[in-house]
Amino acid sequence: MRRFFIGSAAAALIGLLLAGVAYWAYWHFHARFQPVTINRNQAQIQRLLDEASWVSDGAGGQAVYIVSYRDSASAQRYEREEAAKLRAAGVEVRYIVFARADREGLAQSTAAERATVAELWLSRDWMLHQRWMATPSRSWTAAGVPQADGNLARTAVVDASRQFDEQLSLLLKQAGVRVTYPLILWRDRQGFLKACACVDSRSWSALRDDLSAPDRVGQPAPDEEVINPVEEPLQIEPVQPAAPADDGALPYPKLSPTPAAAAPSEPYAPYPLARPEPLPGPFAPTAPQPQPRPQSQPQARPQARPPAPSQPRPRPPATTRHAPQAQKQDDTTFY
């Protein structure tokens, strides 16, 4: 009997131990990344979000706040994979970026990052935020942005971003939120304020469900037929000859192909042959008699060909001429 009680106690202890391990595993791998409904400090948290210098594209709609620093890999992944889905649901995504404070004398932010954070908090320039996020952090030099180091006003703005992060983290920890980045805050359909440390992608679906966001951007409706011309090859049916119409008309006769023309017996002359000249003498052909022309409208006469220029006549060779001499003539008798 004693052995039975000892075995039962050992089995109960082992069962409690296994239950504790299962609960710890669930909390460690699943529950700690799930959204938390904030029951404490709601007004203070909302006031901090409203007073912060967030930036957005100004699309309007329900506000979702994403708090992070520039080099957070999980925040960049969430922006790359989930931000478009939230915008498709008509949500205005508001970004709040801060510069991390130094830790044990080691700077956790660069001068270019601090200058950009100060400029975003002062100007709330959406295009600057887009260019900053699209550029690798090592390549970002903050060209054209005033430096924050050495500027008391801009340094105070950088410190204000750090104070905002410290106060928000303290209020969320008191409400039971495990603070990791990105921190995402929104209100559900009933108006309750929720927060999510969305490091793990398993928590993203709960946020999409609260905001009625699609799982994929551009996903077709369930009842819409999807036609993919790339995967379905085009079916080409052979053309069938049309049947003759039964209207009493004779069918069109089938013509045999025309045979190739026979080659000419004489070679083809590309130019007309020269006309033979008439024979001289009595063998010359009789000239044809002119036929009277029918009266018709006068036609323009062809212009006469200009006469060929006459060549100069050659002169005889020059000879020596002597003066005439007197000659005696016979007397002439006149009767």
Score class of each variant (00 low, 15 high):
residue 6 I to H: 04
residue 8 S to E: 12
residue 15 G to Q: 04
residue 17 L to I: 01
residue 20 G to Q: 10
residue 23 Y to D: 11
residue 25 A to G: 03
residue 27 W to T: 07
residue 29 F to W: 03
residue 31 A to D: 02
residue 32 R to T: 01
residue 40 R to I: 03
residue 42 Q to C: 12
residue 43 A to D: 15
residue 43 A to S: 12
residue 44 Q to E: 15
residue 49 L to W: 00
residue 56 S to T: 06
residue 57 D to W: 06
residue 58 G to C: 00
residue 62 Q to Y: 02
residue 64 V to H: 04
residue 64 V to C: 06
residue 65 Y to E: 04
residue 66 I to M: 09
residue 68 S to G: 01
residue 70 R to N: 10
residue 70 R to M: 12
residue 75 A to R: 11
residue 76 Q to H: 14
residue 76 Q to R: 15
residue 83 A to Q: 15
residue 85 K to T: 00
residue 86 L to Q: 08
residue 96 I to Y: 05
residue 97 V to W: 04
residue 99 A to E: 05
residue 99 A to M: 04
residue 103 R to K: 11
residue 108 Q to F: 07
residue 112 A to K: 00
residue 114 R to L: 04
residue 118 A to W: 01
residue 121 W to L: 02
residue 121 W to R: 07
residue 122 L to K: 10
residue 131 R to T: 00
residue 132 W to A: 10
residue 137 S to R: 11
residue 141 T to Q: 08
residue 141 T to E: 14
residue 143 A to G: 10
residue 144 G to C: 09
residue 147 Q to Y: 03
residue 148 A to R: 08
residue 154 R to P: 12
residue 158 V to S: 06
residue 161 S to F: 03
residue 165 D to M: 12
residue 166 E to P: 04
residue 167 Q to V: 02
residue 168 L to K: 06
residue 173 K to D: 13
residue 175 A to N: 09
residue 178 R to N: 14
residue 179 V to T: 15
residue 180 T to S: 14
residue 183 L to A: 00
residue 184 I to V: 15
residue 185 L to I: 09
residue 188 D to Q: 09
residue 191 G to F: 02
residue 194 K to Q: 15
residue 195 A to K: 00
residue 199 V to H: 14
residue 200 D to N: 14
residue 203 S to T: 04
residue 205 S to I: 12
residue 206 A to M: 06
residue 209 D to K: 11
residue 209 D to W: 08
residue 209 D to I: 01
residue 211 L to D: 04
residue 216 R to A: 14
residue 219 Q to C: 02
residue 220 P to E: 04
residue 228 N to W: 06
residue 229 P to D: 02
residue 229 P to A: 06
residue 231 E to A: 13
residue 232 E to K: 14
residue 237 E to D: 14
residue 241 P to C: 09
residue 241 P to D: 08
residue 242 A to C: 00
residue 243 A to Q: 14
residue 246 D to W: 01
residue 247 D to M: 00
residue 264 P to V: 12
residue 264 P to W: 02
residue 265 S to G: 11
residue 265 S to F: 09
residue 266 E to F: 05
residue 268 Y to F: 12
residue 270 P to L: 13
residue 276 P to E: 02
residue 276 P to M: 01
residue 282 P to V: 14
residue 291 Q to W: 05
residue 294 P to V: 13
residue 300 A to D: 09
residue 303 Q to P: 11
residue 304 A to Q: 07
residue 306 P to I: 01
residue 310 S to Q: 05
residue 317 P to I: 01
residue 320 T to H: 02
residue 320 T to L: 03
residue 323 A to V: 14
residue 325 Q to S: 07
residue 326 A to E: 02
residue 328 K to R: 07
residue 335 Y to I: 05
residue 335 Y to R: 09
